[in-house]
Design a protein around this nucleic acid. Structure first.
Lengths: 113, 113
DNA sequence: GGACGATACCTTGACAATCTACATATCAAC
DNA sequence: GTTGATATGTAGATTGTCAAGGTATCGTCC
């Protein structure tokens, strides 16, 4: 996941929860997930393919998502991912975790000098 | 940096900006930085020494912080870190980066289904 | 005197996630 | 027929963190 053109590489580990969230919005294939994240973030987030597919396989292995081949909007075959029950639970947990963490970090960064 | 007792390991790369921020509050030694982060975050963030010292050396190498030996509060010798001009600039940039990024992620995670 | 916990520094080895770059294939447009 | 978007995937390198260890000083408790 790249968050800046020049040089950024902030944030590791958040890709999973972002993917879970997008998949939770309805069955979707990998390529579209990346597009959706980019669009929803106002181009702040740009997921590289070399990050995306390993992440999807990771999530599938953990049974947080389920995959099946189906025809995409363009008529081509694509692997559609949907959230499992376990995945929905994970999404909840990790979302709470993100909230806690981002609040803690933001709090520190805005502390008065 | 550990954010959860059980299993967490969210967030990589944010340790640097957190350290820069704490150092910006005034010269401080490594051990105290870890304590301060833990305290300021309400125990959400716990920086391991194996993360802390490599990070400090990294920041020093990049000339974002400067280090010198001095006596700590307890009278013992310790390495006190202070922010350089470059470091102050970096802190500003990375803080802005964090704000952009966390806003983007939070926005996605709270999107309606 | 000796053990222990807190303070304070540090390194080593392994691991996990990401990035860059590459490879493949289909389809539409030109 | 070549380019660009769509769509999947892998390989190698890099990076940051973690777990685990080490050294040493200081105060306190027994």
């Amino acid at each position: 996941m790249v968050a800046d053109r020049q040089k950024s590489d902030l944030l590791q580990g958040t890709l999973d929860v972002l993917i879970l969230k997008v998949v939770a919005l309805g069955p979707i294939h990998g390529y579209a997930i990346a597009q959706r994240l980019q669009q929803m973030s106002g181009a702040v987030l740009q997921v590289q393919q070399g990050s995306l597919y390993p992440a999807l396989h990771r999530l599938e292995k953990r049974r947080w998502v389920r995959a099946e081949w189906a025809a995409s909007e363009t008529g081509r075959e694509a692997r559609f991912y949907s959230l499992t029950k376990l995945g929905r639970q994970q999404l909840g947990e990790q979302r709470a975790n993100w909230d806690r963490l981002s609040a803690a970090i933001s709090g520190i960064l805005s502390a008065a000098e």
